[in-house]
Amino acid sequence: MPVLEVRHLRKSFGAVNAVEDISFTVEAGEVFTIIGPNGAGKTTTLEMIEGLQVPDSGQIEFGELSWVKNSEQIKTSIGVQPQSSALFDLLTVEENLDLFATFYPKSKPASEVLEMINLTDQRNKQVRKLSGGQKQRLAIGLAMINDPILIFLDEPTTGLDPQARRNIWDIILKLKALGKTTILTTHYMEEAEKLSDRVCIVDQGKVVTLDTPAALIDRLTQEREVRLTFIDGAEAAIETEKIAQTQSAVVRTSRDGDALQLWTTQPEETLYEVFGFTKGRGFRVEQISIREMSLEDVFIAFTGKEWRD
């Protein structure tokens, strides 16, 4: 059952079309990630869904609810962690949670949320004395204080060190285990690949592609890059390259000294043939690798843009 359905969203500011045509459906219990280059329309899309902006056209439906008729109900059933961790700096962690709790008709006990975001020891610390990662965790805590059905996490790990990022991933996975639906945006491909059930790539105000990370990678062209290096030096590499080029699956090759690169649509088949040849000739292979395709390749393939990391 979809928790959120977005159809043909459109929004322009003056002459700039921030969002041209965005549609997607978010299913209950999934982590749905939106990625895209800067200025792709991610933030505008999120803000329209969060009710901060009114779309020029298109529909946003939370099950039966829509912003026009049910804004109070929607607000009580969503939780938002905005990009700038907007917190009351002069209040303590627990005071922030308590204050936000009173905004909602029902809320989780603060102690439970503190446990989830692992800030129980810092509960009496003022926010201004927290580290960046702790602030971000509190912002996520505030997004779940009302026990929402749908949680928005807008770049929750940007600017954090690897350990702090991993702490946030843990929270996202815990939320998923609780059956919450999460809409995530991120700068980190690794993160999108690790956490998301489905990834939606947005560019120039449109949805470019949408699927599970694995399916997206699969959908990429079937050529895989195979690298081989030889102990027996450049001669072995030259010989092997010649053999490889006779294979129909091999699209192209490239050689640099004793290092050989092959691009093949059937890596298994090609390697079988190549090893048969090297074994027969007694060439010893030093290293072999098949480069894995990542979401980053998907991103580059679909948007034609380098990913900034």
């Binding site: 009710g51 109070e72 969503i78 905005p82 917190l87 700096d89 905004f103 909602y104």
Partner: peptide
């Protein structure tokens, strides 16, 4: 400036 106003507008406060 720090977005708290926007954040509060997303709650039923």
């Amino acid at each position: 400036r720090n977005g708290l106003m926007k954040r509060l507008r997303m709650t039923p406060a």
